[in-house]
Simulated scan of single mutants.
Amino acid sequence: MAGKDDLGRMGEELAARYLVEKGYAILDRNWRCDQGEIDIIAWQGGEVVFVEVKTRSGLKFGHPFEAITTAKLARMNRLAYAWCAQGSDRVPRIRVDVIAVIAPHGSEPQLEHLERVF
């Protein structure tokens, strides 16, 4: 299990660096509440962006985006609103993005970013 956890942390770190390089400001990472966890919360272009990161070492069990089901998106939406409800500031707009990281052993990781999936 530690290997899977390490791979996930590495993927989230790569995703956060990628977002910063693209001009996003990271607001929070691994935010948790009783309903679940959001991997990355960022600010970009007047929007709060809630990012789900899926990392795999290969495609044997499918592309990481295949793990994003309608139930997962609905949960992300609920979590996003829970995060927004904590703050005193009005959030103008929100969106949910997904980042896939494929990191084969001994090879350079590949990153794909889908914006506005929800």
Rank of each mutant, 00 (worst) to 15 (best):
L73P: 10
V48G: 01
F65W: 13
F50E: 05
T70G: 07
T69R: 04
V20C: 06
L59H: 08
Q86F: 04
M10R: 13
V98D: 01
G46P: 12
V48H: 10
M76F: 07
T55A: 06
V98H: 07
A74M: 07
E13G: 01
D97H: 11
F65P: 06
R78C: 01
H105Q: 10
I40Q: 04
L27E: 13
P92S: 08
W43D: 14
A16I: 03
I99T: 01
I68K: 05
V91I: 15
Y81Q: 12
N30S: 15
N77E: 15
R32N: 06
A15N: 05
C84I: 15
W43P: 09
D97T: 07
Q44C: 11
D97C: 10
V101I: 14
K54H: 09
Q35D: 12
S57G: 09
E47H: 12
N77F: 11
M10T: 07
E37A: 00
G62K: 13
P64I: 10
Y81L: 15
T69L: 07
I99G: 00
V49S: 03
A74R: 13
P104M: 14
A82P: 06
E21T: 11
D39F: 11
F50Y: 15
G11W: 10
G62T: 06
R56S: 11
Q44K: 15
P92Q: 07
L59V: 06
I38C: 08
D28S: 15
C84A: 15
V101D: 00
E66F: 13
G45C: 10
A85D: 13
D89Q: 14
G58N: 15
W31A: 02
V48A: 09
I26E: 04
E12C: 00
D97L: 08
E37M: 06
R32G: 04
V48D: 02
E12V: 00
L79M: 07
E47V: 09
F50T: 13
L19G: 01
V98F: 08
R95P: 05
L79V: 01
A103D: 08
